[in-house]
Amino acid sequence: MEATAVKKYTYKDFVSDQEVRWCPGCDDYVILNSMQKALPEMGVEKENVVFVSGIGCSSRFPYYMNTYGVHSIHGRAPGIATGVKLANPDLSVWIITGDGDATAIGGNHFIHVLRRNINLNIVLFNNEIYGLTKGQFSPTSVVGQKTKSSPYGNTQPPFSPGELALGANARFYARIGGNNPKAMTQIFIEAHRFKGTSLIEVLQNCVIFNDGCYTDVTDKEVKDDKQIYLEHGKPMIFGKNADKGLVLKGLKLEVVTIGENGITEKDILVHDAKEKDPTMHQMLIRLAYPIATGIVRAFDDVTLEEREDELTKKIKAGSKYKKTDDLFFSGETYEVK
C-alpha cells in the first residue's frame, strides 16, 4: 500500500481509550509501543487494520489498539484471522499470540496458517511461561525450569518456535529481543510489507513468573556479544567490536574472530534472507551462540489469496452461471402442468 493516498497518522492515533493492564515492567509495553510507532509508517488506513488475538497476557493487546480487533479464544486466532483476510484481502491483519497460545493449544492452527502463506502477520510473545494462569511451564520452557506445574523442574523438552515454523514452510521469520523497540518497530514495518505470512518471535521477559529468562542474551551489557542481528545482503558479523563472524565449517556454523588465524571479512557468510532453501535459516535459528535476531527468512512466494483470486477470476470468466437462477434452472428440470 502506498503512503501517498493515506491519512497521516501519529503514534497517538493508534492508542485506544482502554487502560493497559499488564504488569509494570513487562516487555509487552515495549511491543505495544513499537506497534503503535510502526503503524503510522506502514501507510495503511486505520480502519483497514485488524488485530486478532487468542487468550493469554499477550492477547489483551487488541483492546489497546485503536483499530478493529477481536480478542478471541485460546489458540484460535489464526483461524479467525484467516477468515478475516479471505473475506477482505485489503485488510492488514495481525495475529497477536503467546508461546502457550500459539504452540500448545493452538499448535495445529499455527502450523497451518504458516503453511498456507496468507498475507498476514503473527507476533508471538515468547516468555517461556504461562503468565495469565499464573506460572505454568509452556512448550518453550527449558528442561529443569521450576514452575507452578513443575515444582521439581520441568521434564518436558521444549521446541523452538522458529524451527517449528520453518518445518511448517514459513516464508518469513524474524526474532527480536523484547527490550529492543527500535529494531522491533522496523521489523513490524518489514513484516507488513512482506507479502505472505510473517512470523515475528519476540523474546519477551515476564517480570513475574519467569523474570530474567533472556537476561544472558538481551541485557544491554551482553546483547551485542550474545546476539547477531541479521540483515539481508550483509555479512554475519557481531560483537561489541564487530569482530566476530559466522563461517560454515562442515555442516555447522562456527564463530570466528576477524583478524585471527588469517580470517578477513571476506571469509564471513553473507546473510541471504530471500533464499528459498531454508537450510541456512534453520541453522541460524538453532544457533545457541550467538542468538540470531533480525529477519532470518523472507522468501517471496505466492500467497493463498493470490491463488484463490486467480482461480476465481478464471472460473468466473468461463462460467455460464451468472445468477443462482442460471444454476437452479440448469440441467435436468421438468415441467409439471
Partner: peptide, 20 residues
C-alpha cells in the same frame, strides 16, 4: 475454505463474519 480442523472451520467463518 477447507480448514485444518472443525475448530478452524468455525473460527474462519467467525473471522469472515467479522469482516462482513
Amino acid at each position: 475454505f477447507q480448514a485444518e480442523d472443525e475448530i478452524a472451520g468455525i473460527c474462519s467463518a467467525i473471522g469472515a463474519s467479522f469482516a462482513g
